[in-house]
Amino acid sequence: MARTMTRTTTTADEAPPHAPEDAGQPPSLFPPYRSTVDRSPRQPLIEIPQTLTERTGPAENLMGPARADLTTQHAGVPIGQRIVVSGRVLDEQRRPVASTVMEIWQANAAGRYIHVADQWNAPIDPNFTGAGLVVTDAEGRYQYTTIRPGAYPWGNHENAWRPAHIHLSLLGPAFATRLVTQMYFPDDPLIEIDPIAGAVPEPYRQRMVARFDIATTRASFALGYLFDVVLRGHAATPFEDRHE
């Protein structure tokens, strides 16, 4: 398979290729999650080398300023358990991914989304939207304050319930490092019967489960959870692919 391309120049925005998906990534087709059946390709993916297009990404934040406190976005205090989620964004070599945008969205404490398509009969909280944004610092660290989301029923199968989760979207340094995931909470019995979390084989599924942390728990204010995000790292030394 052609993993190499002839490159005649090295530009200022040149960057090395990223490692392929590891064994913990889910398939596109996972029939227990019913919507995948009509929405996943049947042909095999075609393997291509990462050109400059895939090795680069926007070097600035296009999504606007940080919104790191989801509990102070409206006139009143939202209902529910206040939590502080902290962690780092790292690559597979444990190097910090600095200045990268993490977008956050979630349901409210009752498991209801602020969205017309969410028809579940649980209350909307006028003081909670559930949309945030953080930018990692030089050590890849981020932190945001929110409300612990509730579980909710969905139509995938009889008596189906999604475990409580927070949606996270990260660009990382390149097109190849894009990641959208969901963060789950420890000791949630719904995780092991959820077909979306279940698309990720064990033990890798547990990579999506946050850890309760007393050190980041704020006295008389909020429970602390830790969640590190690991993006695809570099496949090899930056120079290896020039030995062709």
Partner: peptide
Amino acid sequence: FGQTPWQTVGPF
């Protein structure tokens, strides 16, 4: 330790 797994954006 390793790549954080992908999950769907969902409908919302």
